[in-house]
Design a binder for these strands. Structure first.
Lengths: 330, 330
DNA sequence: CTGAAAGCGCTTACAG
DNA sequence: CTGAAAGCGCTTACAG
């Protein structure tokens, strides 16, 4: 490849002058700058990043460990949010996709340490707690969509409770009175906190004749979950007679749409349906399109990058607000 | 950060000996190796990759340009396939997500050139032709899920025709006789080639009383497509009276399941349904679960990496076979 | 405004 | 088996 000295020879200047042009040093005489720029163009010169890094002693790289992230489509927005802001600040994002069997977290960290990353974002597939190895100590680290129970790292997670409160309140305000919340597994944080949020909305509403039924329809221990959504949705429609159903995630809503149709109910007319996630194309694939609380993955990715760029060291536990995407299902 | 000299001082050897240990040079005396290893461990030393790269004059990095890839969930398997093999060969994959408005292809290439990548994989979101800028010339490049009409680069794309032939033949062999193929837009390659594949299956089958109706239900020009799946599915079930429907992509199958249910048809009993893609969780979310031709993205990612690792320069046009995922819908 | 020297943290090539 | 020297392609720090 062509080096800085090749360019210098071609342009008839010292290689230090080429370096100045490349780094936008304003003290270069315009005539020389033009000569150098022309030579760079003609030779197709690009500064060797590895050489720049070794001399500068700064890598300009931020590491992103994606823990099983990429099995769920919308989680990619975490990376997108981080990447967009990183580039704006002339930083690179080095993304490592980690999964238990293939590439251990320790391996990923060692890898990033070898690149002298200036910070690490660790992001999880779903909102949960994580315990990271001690190795991380030398590098500023921030957690996204997960948190450290021992408070060694700052973190940002979705505000599950407020999301459930908001969409439940919206249902109540629209006049729905008998709401079934088909919740996620209550073993996970989202399931626990959303339950509290839905209950809070009912407590605040104080409407008469309002009733809320909450039930987990993703059951079983981690790694062995199964959905009883269809069965329970059908039974609850029969027995509880809800006028609205709130689903723990958009795929669940697909199942509920099928159940509703099979029972002769029209979504958005005889029964309102709401959900969480804004999962890929599912919400607009459904008819009527699904009103859902979109997970704030993009925002969390941006917040995490900003935390590192601003060289913060405070151990905050930040929450990010979901975005209500209004469509036609309630 | 701790350097090779810090380790040398700590272990009481020359820094060149540390270098030998790090690079698994067998000529180091075991006693010294152990001392060095202990010091590395104690000081938490990791070789500086940037310094290694500048001196070695090889980056060990392969670039991956993902053209709008990450808006469709299964396309991530392209990256996964490439990454798994790259790591096995001690190469790193530098993934750049490109989209028209944010980060131009030229920008991505310049970026990768700055890192002195040893090769570039360019992958597109859907099977199509691409024209890449001249800049790429200095670096070995291979295309995945897209191809270069001017034959400057080798490429691998899904074998659309064979996939359609295979699944259609399977339907015929199972005894289905009146098949509707709700095709993708015929403006795109997949739409064209799959049509030919389905027709070939019928031509080869030679069964009596067999009839095939093919129709695009994603219509309109690029960037302005819309689906008329539900409407046409309902009309065709009424008029053509198919015993099986083949869908151009799994999301379309979701719509057809709704139509079938609304018309009192039971999928897998009164009507068979097949599809293409194996799109995220959709096939197993449906009941009965959806038999579909899975796109060979993982395989294509691996093939592309292998092409680069083997330092091939032949301009081949490779195709990759879809995988038939047998479930319960026909 | 420009250049020659020194140095970043490593590996290569050579000497012992 | 080990080490001192030279060098990778740059930037830093200094001199003019």
């Amino acid at each position: 490849m062509v080096t800085i000295k090749d360019v210098a020879a071609h342009a008839g200047v010292a290689f230090k002058t080429v370096s100045r042009v490349v780094n936008n040093d304003p003290t270069v005489k315009p005539a020389n700058r033009d000569k150098v720029l022309a030579s760079i163009e003609e030779l197709g010169y690009r500064p060797n990043r590895a050489a720049q890094m070794t001399r500068r002693k700064k890598s300009g790289v931020i590491g992103f460990i994606a823990d099983e992230l990429l099995r769920v489509p919308y989680t990619f927005d975490l990376i997108r949010g981080a990447q967009d802001l990183a580039w704006k600040n002339n930083k690179e994002l080095m993304v490592l996709n980690v999964n238990v069997d293939k590439y251990s977290v320790e391996g990923a960290i060692n890898h990033l340490l070898g690149h002298r990353v200036e910070g690490i974002i660790y992001a999880a597939m779903y909102h949960r707690e994580v315990t990271l190895p001690e190795q991380l100590t030398p590098v500023p680290t921030v957690l996204a969509n997960c948190f450290d129970p021992s408070k060694r790292f700052a973190s940002i997670v979705p505000d599950e409770k407020e999301a459930a409160r908001e969409i439940t309140a919206k249902m109540l305000n629209k006049g729905y009175r008998r709401i079934v919340f088909l919740n996620l597994n209550e073993n996970i944080i989202a399931g626990q906190q959303r339950k509290a949020g839905a209950e809070q909305a009912f407590a605040e509403h104080k409407g008469k004749n309002c009733e809320l039924h909450i039930e987990s329809v993703i059951i079983g221990e981690e790694g062995n979950e199964r959905s009883v959504t269809r069965q329970r949705a059908a039974e609850l429609i029969e027995n509880f007679k809800p006028d609205a159903i709130l689903c723990g995630q958009d795929p669940m809503a697909v199942e509920v749409y099928f159940v509703a149709q099979s029972l002769g109910l029209k979504v958005g007319e005889n029964i309102g349906i709401g959900s969480f996630d804004d999962w890929d194309i599912i919400p607009t694939l459904l008819q009527p399109s699904l009103t859902t609380m979109a997970l704030p993955h993009y925002d969390m990715g941006q917040w995490a990058i900003n935390y590192l760029l601003n060289e913060r060291t405070d151990i905050v536990s930040q929450t990010a607000k979901f975005n209500l995407i209004n469509r036609d299902s309630f």
